[in-house]
Computed example of a mutant assay.
Amino acid sequence: MSSSLHAYELLRAQINPYAEELWLIALNSQMEMVQKEMIFRGTADHCLVHPRDIFRTLILCNASSFVMAHNHPSNQALPSEQDLVFTRKIYQLAMMFQIPLNDHLVMTATQYYSMADHGHFKKWRKNSVQYLYE
């Protein structure tokens, strides 16, 4: 998995135009895909997700790191505030589990938004180091 574009191209054919879905790409230590799986399916504008199901999947396939992706049937690739809050929570849990979250993509049929490429993870990394040691 060499880039956010590579992850998007890997998942683009899976995009559901009618309901939000959360997908995981589990990676080994060489950043090669070991598993690609849809974890949750929601409605046209919402997807209920529980962190335990994400990490259960990653642990069972012995992932070294992972990429999350979800689609927006509205065809708007910008993340919502809820998307950012949820991603930060998963990012912090991933640090605790020592299974790094490499990226979270918000996808449509024609475009995507990479949270890593837009600097969210760098900002959270600075704040998370303090959080983990408090």
Rank of each mutant, 00 (worst) to 15 (best):
M1D: 11
S4G: 15
Y8K: 01
E9C: 02
E9K: 08
L10P: 01
L10E: 15
A13P: 00
A13C: 03
Q14D: 07
I15W: 08
I15E: 08
N16K: 02
P17M: 10
Y18A: 08
E20A: 02
E21G: 05
E21P: 00
L22S: 09
W23H: 14
A26Y: 05
L27P: 10
N28D: 15
N28K: 00
Q30M: 07
M31D: 14
M33L: 08
V34R: 05
Q35D: 07
K36S: 12
K36Q: 13
R41F: 01
T43Q: 13
D45Y: 14
D45L: 04
L48E: 00
L48Q: 03
P51N: 04
P51F: 13
L58Y: 08
L60G: 01
L60I: 08
C61K: 03
A63T: 04
F66Y: 12
A69R: 05
H72Q: 09
S74D: 14
A77W: 11
L78F: 14
P79M: 14
P79R: 04
E81A: 09
E81D: 15
Q82P: 00
L84R: 08
V85C: 01
V85I: 15
V85Q: 07
T87S: 13
T87V: 14
K89Q: 12
I90A: 12
Y91P: 05
A94Q: 11
A94V: 14
M96H: 11
F97Q: 13
P100Q: 03
P100Y: 10
L101A: 10
L105E: 00
T108H: 10
A109P: 04
Y113P: 06
M115S: 02
D117A: 09
H118G: 00
H120I: 02
F121A: 02
K122V: 07
W124P: 01
K126P: 03
N127A: 15
S128A: 15
V129I: 11
Q130F: 12
L132A: 14
L132K: 15
Y133I: 03
Y133R: 15
